[in-house]
Write a protein that binds this DNA or RNA. Sequence first.
DNA 1: GTTAGCACTCGCTTGCTTCAAGTGCTAACA
DNA 2: TGTTAGCACTTGAAGCAAGCGAGTGCTAAC
Lengths: 341, 341
Amino acid sequence: MEERKKQVLNAIIKDYIANAEPVGSRAVAKKYDLGVSPATIRNEMSDLTEDGYIEQPHTSAGRIPSAKGYRFYVDNLMERPPLRPEERQQVRQAMSGDLTELDDFMRNCCAMISRLTNYASIAAIPERGHGSVENIQLIPLNERQALVIILASTGIIRHKVIDLPGPISPAQLSAVERAMVKALRGAEMRSVSYELLDELLRKYQMQEAMAAQALDLLEQTLRPESSTRIFTGGATHMLSQPEFQDLEKLKSIFSLLEADNKLKELLEKVDPGKRTLTITIGGEMPVEGVKDCSMVVANYFVNGEKAGSIGVLGPTRMRYGRTVSLMETIAGELSRAMDEK
Amino acid sequence: MEERKKQVLNAIIKDYIANAEPVGSRAVAKKYDLGVSPATIRNEMSDLTEDGYIEQPHTSAGRIPSAKGYRFYVDNLMERPPLRPEERQQVRQAMSGDLTELDDFMRNCCAMISRLTNYASIAAIPERGHGSVENIQLIPLNERQALVIILASTGIIRHKVIDLPGPISPAQLSAVERAMVKALRGAEMRSVSYELLDELLRKYQMQEAMAAQALDLLEQTLRPESSTRIFTGGATHMLSQPEFQDLEKLKSIFSLLEADNKLKELLEKVDPGKRTLTITIGGEMPVEGVKDCSMVVANYFVNGEKAGSIGVLGPTRMRYGRTVSLMETIAGELSRAMDEK
DNA sequence: GTTAGCACTCGCTTGCTTCAAGTGCTAACA
DNA sequence: TGTTAGCACTTGAAGCAAGCGAGTGCTAAC
């Protein structure tokens, strides 16, 4: 694409992101000093429309960016302004929270993101946690129930009340506990599975009955149905976006944000995978009802392994550059906070 | 109030709750068979308007109930239809969830309420829990941190990672644990405080240094800042209420529902106290921004002591009777579920 | 005390006009 | 050949008047 076309596209997108109103040739010529007249801009805009980068809501209106236009902008034109000191400060503060109360920590993190971006935020953490197993404790509650506590190397604690397969004395339970610790200390949290434990326990030649009990315990604790925990924040901000004055659109956005399983699916589908960050724009969104939205999702890592993802959901008219800068910083800080311990 | 006036008021409120549109004299005469003509109804309506039970949006419209009208309705006219079997079934199912995972249980409970009412739901549980202390465990994580686990008689488990006042060996910690259990087993959860523990520990003549440590532990665990936990659900339903098509109203409702501390305050102020249930209507609402809303809040009890509250937030044009029936049932079932253990 | 009748009020809808923004085309210009 | 000025044209939004209809309040008769 010729340089001037890029400049025109850039001007249109910047202006539209700022004002949420169709941009005319006159406005481009006036505000963004390209050294040419509105008529020339009009010609460029006509070309850009033909190529699908911008659209006309109706004949007598200016142009608005299309999904393709945003995509080009994000890939080629966008600047990534560094965070301002006070913003960096807010990120730091959220990160200084107590990691052992992970739920509160993540909720707080979402609140911080929404405060800084004015968009909705979504975070996912794997239920099993990450890092490696540091300790396992089995605490008898009564004859038929016990509390399993797994301490991860990240400092995060998982706990779950489980039903015992049969009456087990505290002494027996403690023997099971010792065997489990021996077998699993140092293992990767995410790799701790029914199968792994089966293998390990056989290796350590636990007696058959006890092994079966331990397996059952662990399976209950790590049951896959609760494989991801979802947090959201700042949905209210959506009400203030001029493109979401339409109640129907709001309904579909809010019902998505209230449905954890749909959010799970969404986050999985837009996951950046090995990369740190991914941007999904409008029609690229993999679920219905939020085709007018964009997402910026970042992964964070513990020991080089993906530990979770966190993102923002906003209108396609999103301040991409700023949001990307923020999410990159946050993901980096999150990785650091969890690695450190 | 004369019988016929009551009938007219009842008819107007019922109709307005059902259709969300001003009710005219003709409609009342036609749909609700009072055996008199529209003209007579008009006279009654004129009186009711004068007395402030109903209002006219403008001259040529019908009447809508005022807050005073709703209040009279709720106190004198309202019927409380029993739950339908399938509704009762849904309540039962939500109550059959795992109480030890109290957060999930309450979230699920809120979801059920919102599904049945189509209003937003709010629940508060005291962080300290209720019932009495059944067991306390201190688990060393490292030299400077330990995990405190408190098992309540309700079957609910509280846990918290605390920073130790100084390096304590596992043996020492276990001595502290034994002393704490001895001192506190059977005590009321809500009464477990710094002061009580101080007294108890002295009685049991723990050595000074260890007592100080134990006190510090417990104080951290029961720190008052986290005194109530709030859950919400079904905010999306508000978007479908015809009276909340106005974005500004929605904003104030949603921002309230996102602010846990404001919800805490709200629930405290509308608390039924000793009674099971309270209804707060429109202008009676104690916080700004939800003066167009009503709330039905119910308490549930463990051993005759208030254990928490749960309620719905909807438009003043709420189906009060139905909602009251539902909330009474739920509060009853909640009390039962927590008492049983 | 109740009712029929009727004039009156007032918001909502419809259709019309006007306005302003912005385009696309053409012809002139450098 | 690329750029620009000029201008006719399109179209949604805003403003306005007329007509409609739901509903009222009053009066007089029952």
